[in-house]
Amino acid sequence: MVSNSDFVGRDIISVGDFGREELLFLLDAADRFESETRPLLAGKVAAALFFEPSTRTRLSFESAMGRLGGCCIGFAEGGVSSQAKGETLADTVRVVEGYGDLILIRHPREGSARLAAEFAGVPVVNCGDGAHQHPTQTFVDLYTMRRECKRLDGLHVVFVGDLRYGRTVHSLVTTLGHFDARLTLVSPSFLRLPKELRRELQEREVDFTEAQKVEPVIADADVIYVTRIQRERFTDPLEFEKAKDAFRIDNTMLHKAQPGVAILHPLPRVNEIPPEVDSHPHAAYFRQAHYGVAVRKAILGLLLGQAGEDTA
């Protein structure tokens, strides 16, 4: 049985550290924290070490901390930190742990959050370590699916776009294995989900199929999770032009989907979802970004010993 004490002082580094019950506990906490306005974290300080740029993750954490009465300190790009002067990450973390009650870290190197957690005496939250993990984004994605679809078990989730390099997709496909999901992976052949991850899905007996066209597979989709295909991944510009149109979701296509299908995107989007889709009642990508505040309020609250329950 999961309880609040399982989260107090805990590091959040990789989705692999969380089982099904813990994930559900966290999502329930996000439901409670969404409307939480009490200054539960008054006097608490989150130290945000963003060695790489971030908009949604950093701002939603700052918003979450502010809405709970705490504050955020830190920097938003690596060039201004002491690392630019040659300081190791381990030393930076040992200094900063004295300034905050919790450390939020985004760093270009894979495994950096785990290393930071090893040296920090306060909880560390991984806000993206290179191409490796971005666990709080995965929690937000799960929360969005549950909010939009009113359930999390047995969903048919269609992933579209760059499935090779997108860390949000990597974390999410393995985590959906806890919820008996059926996955359809739609991508250009050279942007398929990496082999190791496909093997992991097979080992965990996750039901998944691969496809190269979106339209034939969306009829019974509960969720369409779209990701950006980046021009720099292509050596041939013509191939990019073809791919960006082939892996795009528009209203004509959505007529063939179930009326309740939820359309998600970790954002930023470019061409893959045209603005006409924004008015679709289940275009959930902006709500998804907004749910990030509720989920991150829950994370901050739980790690710092506030459950957000009505104690009256």
């Binding site: 190791t88 990450l89 381990a90 270009p108 190197r109 894979e110 495994g111 785990r114 290393l115 370590d129």
Partner: peptide
């Protein structure tokens, strides 16, 4: 050594 060239251990002294 970790086989992943992007792993943090290649940058840190650990």
């Amino acid at each position: 050594r970790c086989v992943n060239p992007s792993c943090i251990v290649h940058e840190e002294r650990v």
